[in-house]
Simulated assay, not measured.
Amino acid sequence: MNTENPGSVELFKLAPADIDHLYRRSGLTGNPLSSYSYHAEQAATSSPSELFKPLAESANFASIAKKLLAPDLKMEFKRGGAGSAEETYLALLSLGDNDVLAHFIGQDGNILLLFFDNEEAFLQWWSGIYASKAASTYQPVFPDVMSAEVLVCALHCIDIYRRAYMESMLDYRGGLDLAISTQNFVQLLKRALSSQDKRWLLPTMFEITPGLKEINIALKPEHIKKVQELGFLTGNENPLTLGERARLLGTEIITGWLGSIGCQATALINGQEKSLSRIFLTPTAFANHLFSFEIGAGGDTRFRHQASTMPELIQSMMKWIEALQKVIGGTSPVKPAKGETPAMKFCGQCGAELKLGKKFCTKCGIPL
């Protein structure tokens, strides 16, 4: 956490059956973005667990219930690659405030909730776990918005360099064989994509970025030509030779790859859950490589790359969230003034709506 602007963080734990009581107490009916549905009979014939009490008494009960049961924006994160721990979790947002609810499922099956009272606090926490401090300067790799096929070929070049490096070690060879025919380049690429092996960078991107497997990849000679212009390949079609860019990034991945994070943001469009945007983050000791994917006017998938430090990454993610909110008709909510606490709108004990100026809940009588 950034100690200069830490924000407020609360941690809650719920048993799976507590979700029905959360529905009942909040009065929410839920929406298709939520991972949960309401079982009225079970809620009526059972009692919440002891884990439910801290959430029920929280001043942020209404905001947490809204994000968990009826979010306006859902971001699904997946982590994996390079031997890092694999995990899946959600970040849930509403258009009416700046709060962020991070949702995890614990090893015991219970629900873990981290509630942040602003987006920057969430991103400070998130980047502190999943990003690297990185170097202050990094030479641009992909200067423009490009077709996703170009990225596929470029990451494949990086993996081929890593493969050649490892093979030379196993064979006790000092030099690397960096030549490959176009036919072998394409065949090896197909094998890599079908392998689902997250020890390699290219398969990792597709395996951990939610929804990315759905995009259509159609490799053409123009894509290989583009990676040649970028310095990943040199030479004629037969054979191709890995270029300086593939060697530099290949060495960076070999020595400093910290695993990767994929994310898909979805929202309800005409009542249906639709993908708004996808990102793929590959942090190394040298840079946080952030790739964002968008659908072009012709239906093709295009990407943008940014190599950034941790503060730059946080700013980019802040802008990304703001852009997502605008897409679904929201605006950046006004943040409370420093020291100001947002007024409670619902009772933390019974879930009834509160009336302004009252010192007690008009339904259950609990002091407010």
Rank of each mutant, 00 (worst) to 15 (best):
G7L: 00
L68N: 06
A297Y: 14
L90N: 11
K338L: 11
W125K: 13
K326L: 10
S277D: 00
H223A: 11
P71M: 02
G106E: 15
K67Q: 08
N270H: 13
R173M: 08
N238H: 03
A17P: 05
P221M: 03
L212I: 04
K53D: 14
I64P: 00
E87H: 13
T137H: 13
S34F: 10
S37T: 12
F185D: 02
F286N: 12
A307W: 00
K338T: 15
Q349D: 13
P203D: 07
L95K: 08
K67L: 05
N236E: 14
A218D: 13
G211P: 05
G243F: 00
D144V: 14
E353S: 13
K53V: 09
K225G: 14
Y161L: 12
F280I: 06
F122H: 06
L290T: 08
M146W: 01
N216T: 07
L33I: 11
T255I: 14
S292Y: 06
I208N: 04
L178P: 01
L92C: 02
Y36H: 09
I254D: 09
S275D: 10
A343R: 15
A131Q: 02
L248D: 14
I105C: 09
M317Q: 11
P16D: 00
P16C: 09
P203M: 03
L112R: 15
R304D: 02
R247D: 07
G7Q: 00
I129C: 09
H223Y: 05
T241A: 14
F293T: 02
A323V: 05
N236T: 13
W257F: 04
D18V: 11
A192M: 11
E229H: 12
S94K: 04
G298P: 08
L240Y: 15
P336I: 01
K363F: 04
L233I: 04
E237V: 14
A192L: 05
T137Q: 08
F61H: 03
V186E: 09
S94F: 06
